[in-house]
Design a protein around this nucleic acid. Structure first.
Lengths: 337, 337
DNA sequence: TTGTAGGCGTTATCAG
DNA sequence: CTGATAACGCCTACAA
């Protein structure tokens, strides 16, 4: 009980009364305007403290036409988005980058039932901008929205050029590094387990492999596909072995599939890296303790999320930013190669 | 251009004008009031369609004093929250359960820099309720907030009783099942790699192990601790082996540590399950394709998130709900035991 | 069933 | 530097 009212949360008006100034002044103090005399600032702050005042966001955004919120749009279709350590890392990166700012993170799973819901939400002035994680799907169907709303995409679009703001990982170069490493290890019959070809990372990593192998004067014909799950990696490895038992190296488009592949290799009586060298991609949390420890290409997933967030914030605040930023990858050599 | 105004998003007022009714009526239609004549409803809906009207959330919540938003509070301290497949699954469960509702999900990482930020946010009327994932930390320090805000906790508090609403997994019983399975397999020198004892799941799973083993008339002295990461599992296994080379079974408090443990077992020349049976906990996505495939206790992480969300929504809407719900676990027998 | 009018808590525009 | 005074877009008695 403050004596003024017993009700709910204290309002700016109550603070004004308490401090003996106008609402406008309190607002100025709250928003850090410099044009307020020091003593008034202090008095107001004391009142705020005393009343435990917290500005009401709804009122604020109604009046200011800004929400201080950004949305993270994720394709629900792949219901396993969160199973994917890569995606999880992105979310974390975004959240951490936003943590010290005034922006709030709203997660939006695309509703398959009502696919338009997301669009309406974005257009309804609920957020100041949005992050679209299209890394896996390459789906830039939200692109047209960027005329009405600041948007930053994770991953390049599936079909070539775009004028959108994007943050991506250098998948092709990473794959190149990983595959060259196989060659450097003296492998002459390298194969690859590629990702889905309707996802940019799947396409780019396969391209990197092909380039490395053909550049070395070897055949790049041993290609099988998986869907980034351990099980699919195992199956792809079986198909590969059936096609060419003499395989002596395999570049796998992600660590999860690599784990599956290694299991099959062992099952077949082959040793890793004795008979076959294996290189993965991601450097997920299992890679280092796998048996054998997995040689892999590390991608900065966490950093990707953080960079997307930073970029969006700058975009919202009218600063100029480069259109596409590509984050580097790095080869991590361990025991499997 | 509608002819009315060239500006930004259409407002309720514009719809009213377009449809030739009052704002109040449009509001009623938008909010699904039954007391509007069918033809008017239709006319208004047509106008909404035509103008592409989307209600402004800020205005709505300012007027209605509800935000249609709920927060998911996660402890940033464990910066690796998202690395944890269990946690990731929870987030997904929450998001999916909320997807068909009108509620929006706001993710809040607790800021270590400004720990009070979260509290202020919650109290600032920014959300209608909050979910607190304390599964790992057992931290119910937000409990006192439940007087001012509907709150649902994931995981029981570390210290015994609480009057909060919680959703938890039956960790102890799951551990009991997993450990009994070891005994049923004829193992007489079972050990366990437990989780941190400042986390309820760590405590509960260890208790389950102890109960199973002592009930079978065996010694429950072989206990080492890890922090749920693969690396810590490996280390704990080494310590265990150093203490008692004759170990023939090990119940590990989660799959990630189990993977680490299996690697060490193999390294030491032991076969799994020939020499040592291994049982994990979680049934994460690597379990099935691990080598050997991991016998483990499946916990419904995804369902836990979904249940938390459903519970909170019911709480917010004034329906009555049971205080604590405990989700069952299930033993999944595979090759490692 | 429909319309009128006031208010939700802030910000922003102007004077002073 | 400070204070009135409109908006901001919607909801909700209350009246008709």
């Amino acid at each position: 009980m403050t004596g003024i009212s017993g009700g709910g949360a204290p309002t700016l008006e109550m603070v004004a009364a308490h401090a003996g100034v106008s609402r406008a002044t309190v607002s100025r103090v709250v928003n850090g305007s410099t044009k307020v005399s020091p003593d008034v600032v202090e008095a107001v702050q004391r009142s705020i403290e005393e009343l435990n005042y917290v500005p009401n966001r709804a009122a604020r955004s109604l009046a200011s036409r800004r929400t201080q919120a950004i949305a993270l749009i994720v394709p629900e279709s792949s219901a396993r988005v969160f199973d994917d350590p890569f995606f999880a890392a992105i979310v974390q990166g975004v959240a951490m980058a936003l943590s010290p700012t005034e922006y709030t993170l709203t997660m939006m799973l695309e509703s398959e039932a009502d696919p338009d819901k997301t669009r309406r939400y974005l257009l309804g002035g609920n957020v100041d901008g949005a992050l679209v994680v299209s890394h896996h799907t390459g789906d830039h169907s939200y692109a047209h929205l960027s005329r009405s709303l600041p948007l930053v995409f994770g991953g390049r679009p599936l079909d070539g050029e775009s004028t959108e703001y994007t943050v991506d990982v250098d998948n092709e170069h990473g794959a190149l590094l990983g595959s060259q490493h196989l060659v450097a290890r003296g492998r002459t019959r390298p194969a690859t387990i590629a990702g889905p070809q309707d996802m940019p990372p799947g396409v780019d990593r396969l391209r990197g492999f092909r380039r490395a192998v053909t550049d070395a004067g070897l055949d790049a014909d041993l290609v099988e596909y998986g869907d980034f799950t351990p099980a699919s990696g195992a199956e792809a490895m079986r198909r590969l072995l059936a096609r060419e038992p003499g395989i002596d190296g395999v570049f796998v488009a992600n660590d999860q599939m690599a784990m599956g592949a290694i299991a099959v290799l062992a099952e077949s009586g082959r040793t890793v890296p004795g008979d076959v060298s294996v290189v993965g991609f991601d450097d997920d949390r299992y890679a280092a303790t796998a048996r054998p420890a997995l040689t892999t290409v590390r991608q900065p997933s966490h950093e990707m999320g953080a960079e997307m967030a930073r970029k969006l914030v700058r975009l919202i605040e009218g600063q100029d930013i480069e259109q596409a930023t590509v984050l580097p990858t790095e080869l991590v050599v361990r025991a499997s190669s």
